[in-house]
């Protein structure tokens, strides 16, 4: 029983990181019907911005929430700018081109970021600076909640609340939902659709950066290809929940995190990566639009 509860805590913690990244995929897909393959590399850049800003702020050996939040903040701002720039330079010129062109461009941007990362940061893994020290914050019998897990959970939860508020209650969020329903109609309301698309990339990229920092503190080895597998899983999570659907992305990510944790916990860790795709295949067999999806996913 205790092991079971422990796995739940770990699984939710892992799942919430997947969720941060999955949200970016699903939001961009919802508005542009584009699978932004470069998103996972924005996450990687987020981790590296964290790495360098911790050095620059001189907090590499000063663990604490002050250091953690400053690094988190810088990475989120940095990735917002990166996401904005990617959309502006790579995707906007293709707005009127066939969808496949944008998709191939997304793969190109992804490879560009990965291999530029190898040139600039080096291909060997680096150790993420010690900006937060782990400890045990609560124990329930044998079940332990670590400071890392609590921080991951609270940070993602807070970010999701903010996101939810933006999407449900602000003018920007309403315009985002209107645009994702139908861009031309939104423009007839006076909504500047290009601006809404930019903002979607900005928000999604900031969330990915937060994911990068949280992974950095918990699994402190970062390298330029670190986004590939986690990005794929987050993407699977988004599809699982119904791509384009925000609640679906979070649900899909939690399922993925829990499933992976249980597979590893009960001794089949060789299959941890295969599992993601196994779940995907099974769910899509029964619900082709994903768990909460309503529309048929366009084939690419």
């Amino acid at each position: 029983m205790e092991a079971f509860l422990q796995h739940i805590i770990n699984g939710v913690s892992l799942g919430s990181i997947y969720a941060l990244i999955a949200l970016g995929y699903t939001m961009v897909y919802g508005i542009l019907q584009l699978i932004n393959f470069a998103h996972s590399d924005v996450y990687m850049i987020g981790a590296f911005i964290g790495f360098y800003s911790a050095r620059w702020l001189n907090v590499s050996d000063a663990p604490g929430y002050g250091s953690f939040f400053s690094v988190l903040f810088i990475a989120m701002i940095g990735c917002s700018i990166l996401g904005f720039t990617i959309e502006r330079l790579a995707y906007r010129p293709l707005r009127k081109a066939p969808k496949l062109n944008a998709l191939i461009t997304a793969i190109g941007v992804s490879l560009f970021l990965e291999y530029s990362g190898q040139i600039v940061f080096g291909a060997t893994p680096q150790v993420f600076p010690n900006i937060l020290e782990d400890s045990i914050v609560a124990t329930f019998g044998e079940v332990r909640v670590t400071k890392f897990d609590a921080t991951i959970l609270i940070t993602t939860f807070a970010l999701m609340l903010i996101l939810r508020h933006i999407i449900q209650h602000t003018k920007l969020g309403k315009a985002m939902r209107a645009t994702s329903f139908n861009g031309p109609w939104a423009s007839l309301m006076g909504i500047n659709v290009d601006r809404i698309i930019s903002m979607t990339f900005v928000i999604g990229s900031a969330l990915a950066a937060a994911g990068g920092i949280l992974v950095g503190i918990k699994y402190p080895k970062i390298e330029p290809l670190m986004g590939v597998m986690i990005g794929l899983k987050a993407f699977v999570a988004a599809v699982l929940g119904g791509i384009g659907n925000i609640a679906g992305a979070v649900l899909g990510a939690l399922i993925m995190g829990l499933a992976e944790e249980f597979v590893v916990g009960y001794g089949a860790s060789t299959y941890r990566d295969a599992l993601a795709f196994g779940i995907l295949i099974i769910i899509l067999l029964f619900k082709p639009a994903g768990l909460l999806g309503k529309f048929t996913v366009e084939k690419v």
Binding site: R177, A178, N182, M189, G190, I191
Partner: peptide, 18 residues
């Protein structure tokens, strides 16, 4: 051109967007 995913009030607010 109704935004089916928005509430009726939100649709009206979109009309006043600018």
């Amino acid at each position: 051109g109704i935004f089916a995913n928005l509430s009726v009030l939100e649709n009206l607010e979109m009309g006043a967007y600018t």
